[in-house]
């Protein structure tokens, strides 16, 4: 089973340093909530601030934004070559329900590649494989900064409880965890569970796709590319394991959790692209739902 701890800290539970980091994550990544990887790292002693603080400057750069968008577009291209899910028509949703589901899928389509890139960066750093970028000394290559803040029309990251009252939803969650070898259900599926008929139809269609070799290959390519892109972020990152140890974090557990997320996220990115394909044409799927704008920092 992947090393994802069941223990997480939800946004409403956050206080102190965790609350501070959660408040920084949302405008920096331009997202309306805090995803499972951060909530999981937050539950490991002192770990989240130790990971976030050295990396956050890079997360606000055009390089990070464009690299994440490249991963998103790559996943979209791969999804177009895989089978259609057609879960949306099968779920029989009403107009408002379908609208909200579409908006929720756009949210995860946008943010999940950022999570993968961040996770790959952490993984490389913990493995001691990150090097100071050569270009940093060149002032003309100082990265542009992304204008922070979640897009005003982005759907909120609403989700059902991980132990839902609805037995149908619980059954699907159990099957997802068993099939994908997880301890926790990702935010994405918990959001889809707001529309139980959709979650059920989606998983029925998606489950066999996840067993296909083309799917596995596409996920592997995404992971490899994410590592390449993580190694090209523009600002120096200092995340030695001794710093984590000195800060009170369990390094082995941090490495295990990070590796598990890096393993999980490429598939999740593909899944969301497959789901979104029920709503938009292939050209639209390739475009970013919320392209970044940039700001110039004073010298």
């Amino acid at each position: 089973m992947l090393g994802l701890s069941k223990r997480t800290i939800d946004e409403y539970e956050a206080s102190g340093e965790i609350e501070r980091v959660y408040a920084e994550i949302q405008p920096t990544l331009r997202v309306s909530g805090v995803n499972l990887n951060f909530r999981t790292w937050a539950a490991q002693d002192h770990l989240l601030p130790l990971l976030w603080d050295p990396l956050k400057a890079n997360c606000g750069t055009d390089t990070f934004e464009q690299s994440a968008d490249e991963l998103r577009a790559t996943a979209a291209a791969s999804a177009i070559r895989l089978s259609r899910l057609e879960a949306h028509p099968a779920a029989g949703l009403g107009e408002s329900q379908a609208f909200q589901l579409h908006e929720a899928l756009k949210l995860y389509h946008f943010v999940n590649p950022k999570l993968l890139l961040f996770t790959s960066t952490v993984k490389l750093a913990l493995d001691g494989e990150l090097h100071a970028p050569d270009s940093f000394a060149d002032v003309s290559k100082t990265p542009r900064r992304v204008t922070p803040g979640a897009p005003p029309d982005m759907y909120p990251m609403a989700m059902v409880d991980e132990q839902p009252d609805d037995t149908t939803v619980q059954e699907v969650f159990d099957d997802i965890k068993q099939t994908l070898d997880l301890k926790s259900v990702n935010s994405d599926y918990r959001t889809m569970a707001l529309w139980p008929a959709y979650l059920k139809a989606m998983w029925r269609s998606l489950k066999p796709v996840t067993q296909q070799q083309d799917y596995t290959d596409a996920a592997d390519r995404l992971r490899d590319r994410s590592r390449q892109l993580a190694g090209q972020l523009p600002l120096p990152i200092s995340l030695p394991t001794r710093t984590l140890e000195a800060g009170g974090a369990d390094v082995d557990k941090a490495i295990e959790t990070t590796a598990a997320f890096e393993c999980l996220l490429p598939g999740l990115i593909l899944n969301i692209a497959l789901c979104l394909r029920d709503f938009v044409d292939d050209d639209r799927l390739s475009e970013s739902p919320w392209p970044a704008s940039y700001r110039t920092l004073p010298e």
């Binding site: 029989g92 009403g94 107009e95 408002s96 329900q97 909200q100 005003p152």
Partner: peptide, 18 residues
């Protein structure tokens, strides 16, 4: 009831209605 709701955008917001 929820499945019967329609939806419209009001600027950046959306409103569901019967």
């Amino acid at each position: 009831y929820q499945a019967q709701q329609r939806v419209t955008r009001l600027g950046d917001r959306f409103l569901s209605y019967i």
